Amino acid sequence: MQFRHHPRLRADFPTLVAGTLRLDGVTPDAPADPSPWLDRARARLAGTAEGQLPAVQAWRRAFAAMGLKPTQYRCASESLLRRLRREGDLPSLHPLVDLCNAVSAAYAIPVAALDLDRITGDLEVRRAAGTERYDTFGGDVEHPEPGEVVFVDGAGRAHARRWTNRQSGWSAIGAGTRRAFIVTEALHEDAADDVAALLADLAGALRATWPAATLVEDRPAAAAQA
């Protein structure tokens, strides 16, 4: 499976930096420990509201540029930080999801984890035609608005809506997941350094949690390198 951002999308968002991980050998009963990154996120929230963090502000500007109200549709990392601030913790869903969510909150950068076996062909981040199929976590089927930024595979299935706002239930990590594709994207000034650090932290956590698994890391890619 090849992953890419459409050239027009990269042209519209020239500061975009993305990096990916592929993990083969996921199990649902691994003893993951997300607490170090949740503690780091709590420490950041103690001094700064999530909406003031540079990484979050960059996504708010991107959502506004896409015609979305940033306080109605938030990037995934901002939503996690809001929940962490309000509730003091994040729910435990699956060891892989828990680690990805915790590292995402620590860096305030969205991290998406997808079941690789639920993706058909290549995966591209592009503007929707409006015909793509999106399966919600509740089992409903939606069709993205034309021009909306989505993750689309070779079968025309949308695995995320509004870019980093909401993933699909179709490829959500679950008990049966064995192979995962993880992507992180950032737009702020220090995105290249922060994405590289995020990937290093997450890769280390994944190796510690699934030492027998195969992990492949792609170096962060900036728009100018596409």
Score class of each variant (00 low, 15 high):
148 E>P: 00
124 E>C: 14
54 P>E: 07
153 D>V: 06
160 A>V: 04
156 G>R: 07
180 A>N: 03
212 A>K: 10
96 L>M: 02
60 R>N: 10
13 F>S: 07
100 C>T: 10
220 P>Y: 08
122 D>A: 07
219 R>F: 12
81 L>P: 04
111 V>D: 01
125 V>G: 01
84 L>F: 12
134 Y>N: 00
4 R>Y: 10
113 A>Q: 13
164 T>E: 15
203 A>Y: 06
146 P>R: 00
134 Y>H: 07
69 K>L: 15
183 V>L: 14
51 G>L: 10
84 L>S: 06
129 A>D: 11
29 D>C: 08
73 Y>F: 13
157 R>S: 01
90 L>C: 09
200 A>K: 11
150 V>L: 02
175 A>L: 14
177 T>I: 08
165 N>P: 01
41 A>R: 09
171 S>T: 01
58 A>D: 06
30 A>C: 07
167 Q>L: 15
59 W>D: 12
196 A>I: 01
142 E>W: 15
12 D>R: 13
13 F>T: 11
41 A>P: 05
132 E>Q: 02
153 D>P: 00
200 A>R: 12
13 F>P: 01
206 L>S: 02
65 A>Q: 14
34 P>E: 09
154 G>C: 04
220 P>W: 13
163 W>S: 02
127 R>Q: 13
108 A>I: 04
195 V>Q: 07
115 D>Q: 03
36 P>K: 03
157 R>M: 04
13 F>C: 12
154 G>M: 05
163 W>F: 15
7 P>G: 05
94 H>T: 04
145 E>D: 12
200 A>G: 04
37 W>L: 07
163 W>H: 13
184 T>C: 08
92 S>H: 08
20 T>F: 10
180 A>T: 06
49 A>I: 02
184 T>M: 05
206 L>C: 11
145 E>H: 11
156 G>I: 10
212 A>G: 10
